[in-house]
């Protein structure tokens, strides 16, 4: 195929008479052809249609998501579980703190706090316990 003497013809096809001369006119005809009524209407309306379509797609997607999440959620009142229903209605506290708050005795907590934070000499502890009132005890601790 490198032998240029026997090289096949570069242009072995016929071209219709005057084809290249008429090409310019045909191209101008296509480039400057006025848009027909329907094409013009489509071109003008297309952006608005695309916007409406996008809005529809987003709204549809939102609707599907709300439907799916609605199916996954079960109303505790309607679930048939009496404990869950009572929690939902406010008759039962559901958190850890709430469930233990009623069991905590304030006086016990106060004494426990004192025992853990203040060192009371052994020789006077008995006297304190027997003779001092709560107010005197606080006064004593503040002076100390």
């Amino acid at each position: 195929m490198n032998d240029t003497a026997n090289r096949p013809d570069k242009y072995p096809f016929t071209v219709p008479e005057g084809y290249f001369r008429s090409l310019e006119d045909r191209l101008h005809g296509r480039i400057h052809a006025p848009l027909r009524g329907t094409a013009l209407l489509v071109m003008r309306v297309k952006p608005a249609l695309m916007l409406a379509l996008m809005f529809g797609i987003i709204a549809g997607f939102g609707y599907i998501v709300s439907k799916v999440t609605g199916l996954l959620y079960t109303d505790p009142v309607e679930s048939g579980d009496p404990i869950m229903a009572m929690i939902e209605e406010g008759w039962l506290e559901s958190s850890f703190i709430y469930s233990y708050s009623d069991e905590i005795d304030v006086e016990t907590a106060f004494n426990s706090s004192l025992e853990n934070t203040v060192t009371i000499d052994e020789d006077i502890s008995e006297e304190i316990e027997s003779s001092l009132t709560e107010d005197e005890l606080i006064e004593y601790l503040e002076l100390k």
Binding site: M1, P8, P12, F13, T14
Partner: peptide
């Protein structure tokens, strides 16, 4: 009909 005017070698190559 397709406008081919080449010889046999050219036809085979194409």
């Amino acid at each position: 009909e397709q406008g081919f005017t080449g010889d046999e070698i050219t036809r085979r190559l194409y």
